[in-house]
Nucleic acid binder design. Sequence first.
DNA 1: TCTGGGGTCCTAGGACCC
DNA 2: TCTGGGGTCCTAGGACCC
Length: 418
Amino acid sequence: MIAIVDCNSFYAACERLFKPSLHGKPVVVLSNNDGCIVSRSDEAKALGIQMAGPYYQHKKEIEKNKVAVFSSNYNLYGDISWRVMETLRILSPEVEVYSVDESFLDLGGIEENKLQEYALFVKHTTELWTGIPVSIGIAPSKVLSKVANKLAKKNKVATGGVMILQTPEQQKEALQNTPVADIWGIGGASVKKLALYHINTGWDLRNMSEGWARKNLGGVVGVRLIKELRGEPCIEMKDQLETKKMIGTARMFGKPVYEMQDLREAVATYISRVAEKLRRQSSAAKTITVFLVTNDYSQTYAYKPATSSLYTILPVATSLTHVLIAHAMPLVEGLYRKGSKYLKAGVLLSDIVPDGAVQFNLFQKPSLQSEKKLMAMIDNVNYGMRHDLIKFAGAGTKRNWKMRQEHSSRCFTTRWTE
DNA sequence: TCTGGGGTCCTAGGACCC
DNA sequence: TCTGGGGTCCTAGGACCC
């Protein structure tokens, strides 16, 4: 059996940890740049505030209902997430961290009649040690465990936050009560398609044939989904040591920018971030993509962002920030059009290889040990102090493009000064 | 005036090889 | 009038997740 442990309203719960007066009150957390609502406490959900809705559209009702508003504080959420996952790793032999607020547990070693007891133990211990409430769904496959989790969350009082789908009858009932849109792996495009076939619940979908799924539901992806719904596990527990195949950073600007210099600084800053992430997993990258997002039709009040991108392939894979910056700047220059209004920029590293196995090039000098040492020093200082205490001059100092964060809480658990 | 960020997996189709 | 078979690699783009 597989369990999924999912933190309830995770970001909102983190903010409440350090402001206990907000327990039982509506709380929302905004995305970067204070753009969208990305986390809501139950009380905020009850007010009808939609997930991923633009903040400014809800501002009136938020103020009227005295909803507590927070900008996103990823230092805080990252650290609390780490505490939750460490707790799960202590309580359970095999943990796959799936996202910042969710982990799958392999319960292969637990006797089937002890599952309920075990799940309650995990839930209570996690909540006691970290202060973050969680819900747990257990079933023979990952997709069914997600179904169970959703039902546990929906009926917290009746289920105690734990739901187990063990017997075929339990699975049938659960799927009959689950709209197809709530199934893990079914997104907006599929919901529309399924409606044409009068497939409305998880149970309807479960009863379709594999041949039908192969033809109409994304090929092998659809087949796997049907099998998982029938309780036949097809999505394996993932090895946590796998390295990322793409690493990217992209940000909306606090306000639109028009000058190439601002774009160059922003891109150099983002390169510094991705290079850090790259070094953290001991990799090097061979391909850099830079993209810029414009909105040139604002006279009509239409929000129609357009993305343009360029990439370059390096002669030798690297993780040195200054080398990556040097290769990224010409891409910015190639993309820039004077007079355009830029909303966002981003960089993406791909063709990622282990740093110890970089294929050298006859005509290029490999990175010097001293350069690698320099990177390690910079990472160390920035990790211990503040993430941009040491930075490259190309990243600029004025930061005209810096994102808006008007409701930020402090980094309670990661900065002594705060 | 204002709409996030970071990923994965898969397929179709083009280009190319012998 | 008629024009093979078997394969690889790459890219763009779709769909999805939280």
